[in-house]
Structure formats: C-alpha cells, structure tokens
C-alpha cells in the first residue's frame, strides 16, 4: 500500500483549475474583440437608425407599447427599465434618440470607448425593454455582443482612441505585449460561450419538431411569403437538397458547441456558418440577423489572423496600420 488514492482527485482538480485559468485568464491580444466592435457597432447603429423612421410608433407613450401594457407584460419588475419612461415629452424622446445614435457612432469608430461601450450596452437594453413586442433574434445578439464589448478592451485597437494614444505617446506602434490582457480574454470567451449556448438551444429546440427530422423544415422557411425575399422555391424540384439543408442545419447547430473548440474542426464549423447565415439572410430577408450572427462567429478567429487581415486591408486602402506593424 503506497497510500496513493485510486482516483487522483486532487491532481485532477488541480489540472481542472489550471485549465480554467488558462481558458479565462491567459492574456490575449484584443484584435478580434476590436474588429467585432467595429462590425457589431455598425449593426447597432443601423438597428437604432431604422427605429428613427417610426420612433413615436414604438417608443412614445401614445405608441403601440404603452406603459399600462408593459406593466402587465413585465409585471412589477423594476429591473426592466427604459430611458424612454423617464419623460413622456417628444423632445426627450427625439433628443435622447439623437444622443443615442451619436454614442453608437462614437462606439463604432472607437472614440472614448471605455465610456461609449458601456453606454452602447445600456442603449441597446433600454430600446429593447421599450419595444418588447417588436423584437427578434437580432436584438438578442446585439444585446450580448454589446455587453461583452463593454466588458473587454474593445477600443484598444482599430479605433480613434488607439490613434490618439499613439499620437500622444509619440510612437508609431505600441508594444505588442502591452496590448494583451486577461480582460480581452474574458470578453472574447464570453462571446464564444454565449454563442455556443445560442446555437445549442436553437438546435435542440428544433429536435422537438417533426419537420427537422423528416428533412422538410427548410421548405417551411423558404415558402413563407412573409419571410421570403429571394425565391428559392425552385428547390421543390430537388427535395433531396431541401433534406440536406434541413438536416445539415440542425446537425450543425446542435454540434456547434462541441465542434467549434477543436482546432481540427473549428475552420469547418466556422466556414459552414457563412452559407447557412447568408442563405437565411438572402432568402428570408434577414440580412441584419445573418450579419450579426457572423460577427459573433468572428470571435473564434484568432487575433493573429485578424491582425494580418487588417494589415492587408490597411495596405489595400492605403491606410498605415502602425498598431500591427511590429507584431
């Protein structure tokens, strides 16, 4: 008897803790996060810009979601808040809307990002809480991306803030080591994990339906007049394509949380996201949803690849990218 336990619980726990620490806290270059800021910021700005067309309809006290309805809808919860509830004056509604659009634009270009990222998240939540009956998947993804971009240093690169910092310090490029941070890792990991949860529940929810099993569900989506923007009903003559699209979609969604992590399968699963979301976007008139889902998927692209892409883009556009020059 050596006194060694049959199951080495302690060493297993120690390894688990180390893996947890490596996963969450190994400092990471924020290039991916900063690219997501630009791409998600554009969508946040567009989403809120479109509200401008019918702002009184959806956000005024004389609109379709009046206070009494929302009290019934949310109960007495004081945690569901909206700045539109602070005053019923049209001046407040329009004034705060213009300020919100300015903040979202500043966030997108990365000016005063520490503050504008937090404000951008609060704006997203505030609008969603007010127009609760007119929301869809896009708003949910907008919400969590804005949250995690506020958590992480999303303005550290590809931003006006980074440009100003370099100018102030009189350097052409920052030290690569100073850019990496655990905060960037935490924010990126949160986006990745949240996306896995979204796909997992979207996938297992579909497993309850018979048409996702018999391979015809995609037909239901393609033949919906209210959704359709691009006519793909010619696929009726190739039912096996509809079967493949249906079964692949559901398999891809359910398996995403497991297959996106191994280096071997990650490129395949990421690549599959592109036709899937673009297909939904083009055929079902949901390009905004397609865009934001692909932006969230970008969280799985390594910062090194993002830096190379941005450098290449910068050189093509004739913009110097000194923040990536020495990395």
């Amino acid at each position: 008897m050596t006194g060694e336990p049959i199951i080495p619980v302690k060493s297993w726990l120690r390894e688990l803790l180390q893996a947890w620490n490596r996963f969450w806290f190994t400092p990471r270059n924020p290039a991916t996060l900063c690219l997501i800021r630009i791409l998600a910021g554009l969508m946040l700005f567009y989403t809120h810009l479109v509200w401008t067309l019918e702002l009184p309809t959806f956000f005024s006290e004389q609109g379709v979601f009046r206070p009494e309805y929302r009290e019934l809808f949310f109960g007495e919860s004081s945690f569901v808040w909206s700045h539109f509830d602070w005053s019923s004056s049209p001046a407040w509604m329009w004034g705060s809307h213009i300020v919100a659009l300015v903040i979202l634009a500043l966030f997108t270009i990365g000016l005063w990002t520490r503050v504008t990222s937090i404000l951008a998240f609060l704006i997203v939540v505030s609008y969603c809480n007010r127009a609760s009956g007119a929301l869809f998947g896009l708003d949910q993804i907008n919400g969590f991306l804005a949250l995690y971009l506020a958590v992480g240093p999303s303005g550290m690169m590809y931003s006006v803030d980074a440009w100003r910092a370099r100018r102030k310090a009189g350097v052409s490029a920052p030290d690569a080591a100073t850019l990496s941070s655990a905060q960037a890792t935490v924010a990126t990991r949160l986006i990745q994990l949240h996306l896995c949860i979204v796909y997992f529940f979207a996938g297992v929810g579909k497993l309850q339906g018979t048409t996702w099993w018999d391979g015809t569900a995609i037909w239901g989506a393609l033949a919906s007049y209210e959704y359709q923007t691009l006519d793909a009903t010619f696929l009726v003559y190739a039912p096996w394509i509809i079967n493949i699209l249906t079964l692949t979609s559901v398999f891809w969604e359910v398996s995403y949380p497991f297959m996106i992590w191994p280096k071997l399968t990650r490129p395949i699963w990421l690549f599959m996201a592109v036709p899937l979301h673009l297909g939904i976007g083009l055929c079902m008139g949901m390009m905004t949803f397609a865009w934001i889902m692909l932006v969230a998927n970008a969280s799985f692209i390594s910062p090194q690849l993002v830096q190379r892409l941005m450098s290449w883009l910068g050189s093509k556009l004739g913009i110097a990218r000194p923040d990536t020059a020495n990395q």
Binding site: G137, G205, W212, A217, G220
Partner: peptide, 8 residues
Amino acid sequence: YRFFAPEP
C-alpha cells in the same frame, strides 16, 4: 433562442 423551433 428557439429560432424557427420546433418548426417553421
């Protein structure tokens, strides 16, 4: 997150 579930 049950998009188009249980079926369209």
